[in-house]
Design a protein around this nucleic acid. Structure first.
Lengths: 200, 200
DNA sequence: ACAGCGTAACTATGAACATAGTTAGTTGAC
DNA sequence: GTCAACTAACTATGTTCATAGTTACGCTGT
């Protein structure tokens, strides 16, 4: 069985973060949660071993630092090979395969549900996406006024000419997520009406 | 480590299919591809062992049938326990955890891409979701005029009073997927404009 | 008579993920 | 001075998923 070239997105999510600055595993995990993690969730138990694998593959270089009297921690620097790998990934068009959507799976068989459970599901869908949409709206605001600290660090390290692009694409990403959330909310509201109509 | 109760959606996707009629493994796989598979993709290599596990867990009962002179196949019937498990799942509100979206991950770092690669990605996104939207539109038409064979079988086995619900929720599901696809298309078009603006 | 295609069912392998821990140092409040 | 909360890094285990096979039957056309 062969390794299939172009997938493994956690790896690229981590590279994305490390293009900005060198970080320790714990730093990576913490920053991940507040940035890339919104589009690609991963627990620390997946991040630590992946960082080690990436070091082994030459994409990162780990520099050990003392921590306290006995402890030590490793700060990961992206290597030129790492930058190259990231660039190659970003220039490759993604293929669209897996479709895995529990909510729509459930929606398709809602005739099996208690009407109240069906309504609760739709309300939970609305609540979830509303809260996300709001969160992203705040994120966009913080990106626009440059008060987002992770963005600020990234911008500092980047040439002036690239700064509009860096911020612009991040805002664009969150805008897309808001659009999607709004579509979900609209759909679920329609679902509530449908439940009222069908379960009478 | 314990088995964590309420997840494992492939199992419920299979139960959903088998609430309508008993099917052999191969039938399941084929029908899956044309119905539930649109919201929950799974290869046959995952379906066969899962069916066996479900039989072991008492959710299905497999009845062996002769096939040719030597061959045999197994037709899976849903058991009352299976129906109960499905009903329990559908009445449980899903929890929203994993967020894993390679396109938005990539979008957030598009400043690293060649402008042409960025455009190609957005165009691929539009093409993919356009084709899906069209496919679902056709699916809705076939559900509305009852010409979809999988739906027809399901409706035959169901009491008259449930038929509007059964069809209605399936149409609702595909409507949601169209809405989402349209949001993606709209976003990607905005992306193309943004690329033109930023990469000049 | 056999080639080609579709049906049917299964196996093997590894990677990715989720869940749930453990160990140990650091900082600040009471 | 000790306890809680946080930082830091890691381990263990099982499940899910993807990829890529294999084996064998049955029907249709030449």
């Amino acid at each position: 069985m062969e390794r299939t070239g172009g997938e493994v997105s956690l790896r690229y999510a981590l590279l994305a973060l490390l293009t900005s600055q060198p970080l320790t595993g714990y730093d990576v995990f913490k920053q991940f949660e507040q940035s890339v993690g919104y589009v690609w969730h991963a627990p620390d138990s997946q991040i630590y071993p992946e960082l080690r694998r990436m070091e082994k593959d030459g994409l990162l270089r780990g520099v050990e630092e003392a921590w306290g009297k006995k402890g030590k921690k490793k700060r990961y620097h992206i290597t030129p090979e790492g930058v190259e790998a990231f660039r190659a990934w970003i220039n490759t068009t993604l293929d669209y395969t897996r479709e895995r959507d529990p909510v729509h799976l459930k929606a398709a068989y809602l005739e099996w549900a208690e009407p109240e459970a069906a309504r609760t599901q739709m309300q939970a869908h609305i609540a979830y996406h509303s809260s996300r949409a709001q969160q992203w709206q705040e994120m966009i605001a913080a990106l626009e006024d440059r008060s987002n600290p992770i963005l600020a660090t990234r911008l500092e390290a980047a040439p002036e000419a690239d700064r509009a692009k860096i911020a612009g694409y991040k805002i664009f990403t969150y805008e897309g997520m808001i659009e999607r959330a709004n579509a979900e909310i609209h759909w679920a509201r329609h679902g509530l009406e449908l439940i009222d109509k069908l379960e009478s």
